[in-house]
Design a binder for these strands. Structure first.
Length: 283
DNA sequence: ATAAGGCCCTGACCGC
DNA sequence: TGCGGTCAGGGCCTTA
């Protein structure tokens, strides 16, 4: 599942190979992936444009062009982008192909078909509702405490809410809550100031480490696996302490990691180190 | 405004 | 071997 560290890795690793390349042709095989404009306008609109800038906002990739329009890509669950020789025939799950100058094509592959792309002169409209960048100056314990105040929803659910902060998904929410020693089901508004401070620091630490490790590549199935644009795996899965470790011992206390469902998503945690309330152990 | 549930998708996995 | 059922999950939409 590409989250902030995986998308950041995509931007960093795609930029050198896409910089200055021109789109000769764009082919959309699954129109549903194009959120704006229509698939036809998307195909014709990209012809002749050159990639010039590469940025990330939350889990969105922003590919700047020598044009007022920006190509925005959200990989959602299983989206992948990679370069292949120009004559590579489209596979079953390749929904968009950008034929580039230089004899290569950029392929968008997405078995789940959840990912979306936009080609728009107003990227700010697509991104308008996003909360601050977790690693930017606006994401502070004070900010987070204010956003959580009065909220009865579980803290895990609000960590996943992109309006509150942009870029955290299921993996890094679980890992951050474990490191902050907070039960994922705690009512967000009931967190004490010191706990919010811990959480804020844990979110940033987990994301920074995951970026350093080029993201998390998970699972035996290639379905949900995040793979870097060059085909390599990330490394942060080796540092997961709770995510998808149900039944395995907590690295701190040895109690089996448990799994519960919060906001329709699995949450992994240690019931000893992350008590629902009361006294805390000290990992 | 907030919270909760449904929906989109399909490969993997399980039981029979 | 094959079949049907269930699960996962980000973001958006609907409902209360």
């Amino acid at each position: 599942m590409p989250e902030l560290p995986e998308v950041e890795t995509y931007i960093r690793e795609l930029a050198p190979s896409l910089q200055g390349r021109r789109v000769l042709r764009a082919r959309v095989y699954w129109p549903g992936v194009i959120a704006f404009p229509t698939a036809e306008e998307f195909e014709t609109g990209l012809v002749g444009l050159r990639f010039t800038q590469f940025a990330r906002r939350g889990k969105y990739m922003l590919l700047g062009l020598d044009d007022p329009r920006t190509l925005i890509v959200h990989l959602r669950m299983t989206g992948k982008l990679f370069l292949a020789p120009a004559d590579t025939p489209p596979g079953k799950h390749e929904h968009v192909i950008f034929d580039l100058d230089g004899g290569e094509s950029l392929l968008y592959q997405d078995p789940r078909k959840f990912g979306r792309m936009w080609l728009t002169p107003h990227p700010e409209n697509v991104l308008a509702a996003l909360g601050p960048e977790p690693l930017g100056p606006d994401f502070t314990a004070q900010y987070l405490h204010a956003k959580l105040a009065g909220r009865s929803a579980c803290i895990k659910a609000l960590l996943l809410d992109q309006h509150i902060l942009a870029g955290v998904g299921n993996i890094y929410a679980d890992e951050a809550l474990y490191r902050a020693r907070l039960h994922p089901g705690r009512a967000a508004g009931a967190l004490h100031e010191e706990e919010v401070h811990r959480l804020c620091a844990a979110v940033q630490e987990v994301l920074r480490s995951a970026i350093d490790q080029r993201g998390s590549s998970l699972g035996l199935s290639n379905l949900q696996n995040y793979i870097r644009p060059g085909g390599e795996q990330g490394g942060y899965q080796e540092e997961h302490l709770v995510f998808r470790r149900t039944g395995q011992p907590c690295p701190h206390c040895g109690h089996p990691i448990e799994r519960i469902v919060i906001a329709q998503r699995s949450s992994h945690f240690c019931p000893v180190c992350q008590p629902a309330s009361g006294t805390l152990s000290q990992p």
